[in-house]
Nucleic acid binder design. Structure first.
Lengths: 94, 94, 94, 94
DNA sequence: ATTGCGGTTTTTGCCC
DNA sequence: GGGCAAAAACCGCAAT
C-alpha cells in the first residue's frame, strides 16, 4: 500500500508538535499541576476533618478559625512598627 | 471609626505639622479617599442588586458575568484567546 | 453592535424572546450593570488622582493605603473582645 | 502589638484546663491544622513554579488555567454553560 | 430543602 | 514583568 496519507507532520525531534504547540511539554505541565492540586485537595480534606473533630469535641469552629487567622496575621503586624506608618498614624492622632 | 477629634498640637503656623508630617494635608487626603470609597461601595451594592434581580428572573448570573467580561475586552483579544484555547485543546487531543 | 437582522418570531407580547430568552430584559440588565460599572470606574480614577496628589506632596502612597486599611479593619477588631475568642486565647496562653 | 515569642505555655497538670477549656486538646488541634496549612502552602508554591515554567516556555498561563478548569468540570456541564452563553449572546445580537 | 450570606481562596487587572 | 490590590468564584452555614 502506497504510503499512508499524510503523517500530519511528525516533528524531526521527539517533541510532538501539534499545530505549532509543543504538545508533550504542555501535557506534562498540565499533568503535574493537576497532580499537585490533587494533593492540595487531600490536605484540605484533612484539615476539614480536624475541624470536624474540634467541633465534636465541643469547640467553636469559627472561633478556632479566627484564632489561626490571628496567629498568622500577628507576625506581619510586628513589622508594621517603627516605620512611616507609625509616623503617619501619630500625625493623625490614631 | 471613633478617632478622637482632637487637634493634638497645633503648630504655630497654620500648617499643623506633627512629627514632620503635614497632618492636615494627610487627613484631607485620607478623608477624601474614604469618601469616594464609600460611594464606590454603594455602587457595588447596586450592581449586586441587579445581579440578584437577574437571578430571580431566571438568568444564570455567572454567564451574564462572562458576557459582560467579553463585551469589555477587545473583540480581537477575545478571538485570540479563544483561538489559543482551541489550539491547546487540540494539541492535547481534547 | 450590529444586532442580527433576524426577527424570526416576534412574540405576541412586547417581550422580544430570542431562543427562549427574554432578550429585552437581559439587555436591560446588562446595560444597567455596565452603566454602574462606568461610574465605579470613574470613582476609581478619582481616587487614583488623590493618591497621585499625595505622592507629589511627598507622602508614601503605600503607607497611606495601609493606614486606610487599618482604619477599615479596626472597628472589626474591637468586636473581637469578650468572646470565646478571648477564652481560647487565654487557654493557649496567647 | 509585639506578642512575646510563643511557647504557648505548657500547663503543669495533665488536665490542662484553662477557663474551662481543654487547652491541650485545643492546642493540638490548632497545631495540626497549622502544620497541614504549611504543606498546602508549599504545594501552592510548587504549582506557581510550574506556571512560571510554562510561561517561560512560551505558553499563555491564563489559557492553561482555562484548560485545567474545563478538565475539572464535568464535560456535560461545560457544554451546558457554553450553550447558555451562546444563547444569551444571540439574544443580545452579539 | 433551598437559597441567601459571610468568609476564604483564587483569579484578574494594575502600577511600578 | 513581578508584586500588590480588587474582583470573582467557592464553600459551608444558617435561616426560613
Amino acid at each position: 500500500m502506497a504510503r499512508a496519507a499524510r503523517p500530519l507532520r511528525m516533528s524531526v525531534t521527539k517533541e510532538s508538535e501539534v499545530g505549532g504547540i509543543a504538545a508533550d511539554r504542555l501535557r506534562s505541565i498540565i499533568e503535574r499541576i493537576e497532580r499537585l492540586e490533587e494533593e492540595r485537595k487531600a490536605l484540605a480534606s484533612d484539615i476539614k476533618d480536624i475541624y470536624a473533630e474540634a467541633k465534636s469535641a465541643g469547640f467553636e469552629v469559627k472561633v478556632i478559625r479566627q484564632l489561626i487567622a490571628i496567629r498568622k496575621r500577628e507576625p506581619a503586624e510586628v513589622a508594621e512598627q517603627e516605620t512611616l506608618l507609625d509616623l503617619y498614624r501619630r500625625a493623625l492622632g490614631m
